[in-house]
Nucleic acid binder design. Structure first.
Length: 159
DNA sequence: GCCAACGTTGGC
DNA sequence: GCCAACGTTGGC
């Protein structure tokens, strides 16, 4: 018995980890999320097989560059326990981990990226609750409705 | 590089 | 519980 598939958008700086990197490795643990809202989406919301829009931030043309999917249930982010990691959290213990992640699996690259600019032009259709273009929102993991998913991928040029 | 917006920390 | 200080995000 599986619940209905959900959709998400996950941001990454391509200099740190890009859609090409994901294609190369296939599956990647989404380490380093240190925001409670984003953590909660991964820990409480995500299910294996959910769709992910892979977004490049902090780059020449910010936007959606590929599709991925949730590959595992949520589990504790191992980097919180690693003293040498920049993601180390001294308040986290293995008995009571603070940060969770899922593994993300490559599905495909888009034929052409869907730029943030194009996405903004669909603001009315996407609705006010869409966190990507909500003023001031910087969430790196955010939910996407089935309707929004359809609108966004409808912007992909297929030629 | 700038800076607005936001989240977190810590003193009180 | 308040809030100033600080750090981070991320578009531009």
């Amino acid at each position: 018995m599986s619940a209905r598939k959900r959709y998400w958008l996950m941001k990454s700086e391509p200099t740190d980890f890009s859609i090409d990197d994901l294609e190369r490795v296939g599956t990647e643990p989404w380490t380093g999320v240190r925001n409670y809202q984003a953590r909660n989406f991964m820990r409480n919301g995500m299910q294996i097989g959910d769709g992910i829009l892979f977004y490049h931030s902090n780059t020449q043309v910010p936007g959606i560059y590929g599709i991925a999917e949730v590959a595992t249930e949520a589990y504790p982010d191992p980097t919180q326990f690693e003293r040498k990691s920049k993601y180390h959290d001294e308040k986290a213990t293995r008995e009571e981990p603070r940060w969770f992640l899922v593994d993300v699996r490559f599905v495909r690259k888009l034929h052409a990226p869907i730029s943030l600019e194009e996405i903004r032009q669909q603001a009315d259709a996407l609705g006010e609750e869409f966190a990507l273009i909500r003023k001031g929102s910087r969430l790196s993991v955010l939910p996407v409705t089935a309707a929004q998913w359809k609108i966004l991928l409808g912007l992909e040029q297929t030629s």
